[in-house]
């Protein structure tokens, strides 16, 4: 089962992103780790869709890809810039 092996490898890869998600240290690091998990999940879904002969999984992957863009746009406009603007909160944006 070639596809399952590659999917498991990608899942392990996403596990590394979990560590980054936990450790940070900046909020941008965390957001990028979440995006890495999202991209890995898309690849896993496409591989499983071929491996299990379930074309509907491509739809789930499509939704993942679309909503990852919304999440990033939200982060940049609503969280990241706000954290940087407030000087009293610089620590949260920079370090934590």
């Amino acid at each position: 089962m070639f596809h399952a092996a590659i999917a498991a490898l990608l899942l392990l890869n996403a596990g590394v992103a979990l560590w980054r998600l936990h450790r940070g240290p900046t909020s941008a690091d965390r957001m990028l780790a979440a995006e890495l998990i999202s991209v890995s999940a898309i690849a896993v879904l496409l591989l499983l869709g071929i491996g299990l002969a379930q074309p509907a999984l491509v739809d789930v992957a499509l939704i993942f890809a679309l909503l990852a863009a919304v999440a990033t746009a939200n982060f940049v406009t609503r969280t990241w810039t706000l954290l940087h603007e407030e000087s009293g909160n610089r620590e949260e944006a920079g370090r934590d």
Binding site: H22, S27, A33, A34, I37, D96
Partner: peptide, 12 residues
């Protein structure tokens, strides 16, 4: 913020 991003990854 970390909790929120963990929740988003949880959904994925």
């Amino acid at each position: 913020f970390s909790a929120v991003v963990h929740f988003m990854a949880f959904g994925l």
